[in-house]
């Protein structure tokens, strides 16, 4: 059976790297068969995850590493994002009440909400004090 090779690339924890991150993921998603809308959703979700890592896990320290691994299987495109920063607060995993959220004009947490809307599955894995991992899964349409 044909197996896709795993693709991986490491980026520095700076916002100026976000464009390269998006380009890297967009190319892989296009090759996998996603059309423009699917690609847009995937790269925005990845951008949000990386922005959270830069701002919250690494607290804007510019020389830390973010590894992006792309795992492709049949109709599933999965982006795994690794960092060694401060662990993500699982309380944010709760679905926020959007109305309440907007009423209070909260800025933080919008990214987490968007990620859940943009891809089919969001998973967090933590090895305390070592590695944080976010997995963003998107299925090719027409399954």
């Amino acid at each position: 059976m044909f197996a896709y090779p795993q693709i991986s690339k490491t980026f520095l924890s700076r916002t100026e790297q976000l464009e390269d991150v998006r380009t890297f993921v967009a190319e892989a998603a296009r090759q996998f068969g996603f059309a423009d809308e699917g690609i847009s959703n995937i790269i925005l979700a990845v951008d949000e995850a990386c922005t959270n890592i830069i701002k919250h896990a690494y607290q804007n320290a510019p020389d830390k590493e973010i590894e992006i691994r792309i795992v492709r299987e049949k109709k599933t495109f999965e982006v795994r994002i690794f960092d060694q920063g401060k662990s993500f607060d699982p309380a944010l995993l709760r679905n926020p009440d959007l109305k309440e959220f907007l009423a209070h004009h909260r800025r933080g947490g919008l990214g987490v909400y968007l990620m859940k809307k943009l891809v089919d599955d969001v998973e967090y894995h933590f090895v305390p004090g070592h590695t944080n991992e976010v997995r963003l899964k998107k299925y090719l349409p027409g399954l």
């Binding site: 976000l18 925005l44 951008d47 949000e48 922005t51 004009h105 909260r106 800025r107 919008l110 990214g111 909400y113 968007l114």
Partner: peptide, 10 residues
Amino acid sequence: SSAGLGVFMA
């Protein structure tokens, strides 16, 4: 991205 949307909210 949400960072941009956040500016409007701010």
